[in-house]
């Protein structure tokens, strides 16, 4: 069910994105940072769902809140002539790596446990 939603969302998003008007270059850096923040939230959501700690409220508020906050910070950085958006990207990307590591470990654990079980089963069979 969720996978169907994801695939459907990808297809419709692709079509929408291809037909929507492009934005001016000045604002494209803000959109880029919002995209990075949203991706971070998505990976965070996946990681937390794997740990059985997924919360819809946290996910949605993180998705929109982080994106908006990132845009605002980038804007502030531009006004202050400090490249805050670089720091925001750094933070989001490092968190993305963390979450990816959690996901990777989860599946690696799962894979190893299955191998061990299979080995035990084989041992039992030979006995």
């Amino acid at each position: 069910m969720i996978f169907i939603a994801i695939i459907l969302g990808c297809v419709i998003g692709l079509v929408l994105g291809n037909f929507a008007p492009i934005i001016s270059y000045t604002y494209s850096s803000y959109l880029a940072i919002a995209i990075v923040a949203a991706l971070d939230s998505v990976f965070g959501g996946v990681a937390s769902s794997l740990n059985k700690k997924f919360d819809m409220g946290i996910f949605i508020s993180g998705f929109f809140g982080n994106a908006i906050l990132a845009i605002l910070l980038a804007y502030l950085g531009q006004r202050l002539n400090v490249d805050i958006y670089l720091v925001a990207i750094f933070v989001f990307v490092s968190r993305m790596f963390n979450n990816l590591a959690i996901i990777r470990r989860y599946y690696l654990d799962k894979f190893r446990k299955r191998k061990i079980k299979e080995a035990e089963m084989a041992e039992n069979n030979t006995k």
Binding site: A5, I6, G13, L16, G17, L31, M56
Partner: peptide, 24 residues
Amino acid sequence: ITISIVVFFITVMLVSSMFIQFRT
């Protein structure tokens, strides 16, 4: 079902904004 709907909308938004950015 609600989770699926939310995920759907979020995917749509994310992918469409990503493609807008690509094209830009």
